[in-house]
Amino acid sequence: MNAFLDSLSRPPSLTESSGVETPALECRHLSLSRRQGADFWAQAASWMTKVPILRDLSLELPQGAVMGLVGRNGAGKSSLMRCLLGLTPADQGESRLLGCDSRQLSDPVRERLGYVAQTPDLFGELSGQGHLSMMGRIYAHFDLNYALRLALRLDLPMGTRADKLSMGDQQKLSVVLALAHHPDLLILDEPVSSLDPLARRDFMRELFADADERHPPRSVLISSHLLSDLERVVSHVCFLHQGRVQLVDEWDALLEHLRLVVSAESLPEAGRVNERRCNGQVHTVLDLRHCPNPERHAQGQPLRMDDLFEELNA
C-alpha cells in the first residue's frame, strides 16, 4: 500500500481525540492471527505457524455514520467485528466501542450495542416469542411492542421453533433481536444475505426508523456483499483487503472524485488509489482531489461500488 492510502486509513491516535466527539467505534493497530488448528484454512497453510487475519488495522466510525464494510471472503470483516465486540481477543492493538474498551465492555455500554452475527446465533428449541421474552429479561430498554411490530413487518412467524425456521427467517429473528432495545451502535455481519429484496428494503428502512428522536444518532457498521443495497444507506465505506484497510472514505466523496482511467502506460503516482493490469492495459483508479491536473481525467469513468470493488480486488 502506498503512503497516500496509508494516510487515508490512519485515524489520529486514540489518546489524541480529547476535545472532539467520541467516535462510535475506533480501533488502532489491531492484529489477529489464527493459530494452526483443525480448520481447513489453517491446514492449507500448515507450513506457517500462524495465519494473519487482521494486519495492523486502524479504523474510526464517527457518531451517526453508517459504514459499509466491504471486502472479499476472508478479507477479515467478521474477524474485525468480533474483535471490536471483544468476542475474539486481538493479538495486538486496541479498540473502543462508544468510548469503552472492547475487552472490558461495561453493562451500560452492552445495553447500547446491537449485533447480528454472520450465522444466526439462536436457541434452537426456543420460538421467536420465546427469544423475545428472554431478551426482555436481559435488556433494560427492551421494547417488546416495537419488536413485535418489526417481526410483523418483516413477515416473521413468531411461534415456530428457531431451528425449524428457514435461513431467511432465522436472519430476520436475529435482526429483530438486535434492534429491539434501540441500540446506539449496530454491528451487522451480513445481516441480510438470506433475505429477499423486499425484506432487505424493509430492514434498511428500519435502521433509520427512529432517526428523528435519537440522541446521539445511531451509528452502524454493516458488512454485505449486496453492494447496491449498501449504496442506498451508507455514509461511509471501508474496503478491507487481506486484513488491511485498503480504502475508507465518505461514499458520496468516492463516487464524486474517483475515476477509472484505462491507459497503455502507468500513470504518475499522485492521486493514484489503485492500479492493475487487465488485458494488456493499465486500469488506474484516481482520486481527483489528489491529482495535480484533475481536469485531465475528469472524463474518466465514475465508479459505482461494485466497479470499485472489482478494481480493488481483481
Binding site: 428494503r201 424493509d202 433509520f208 432517526a211 455514509s235
Partner: peptide, 9 residues
C-alpha cells in the same frame, strides 16, 4: 428517506 430506503442524512 423511508420511502426510498435511503439514509436520512
Amino acid at each position: 428517506a423511508q420511502l426510498h430506503a435511503i439514509n436520512p442524512m
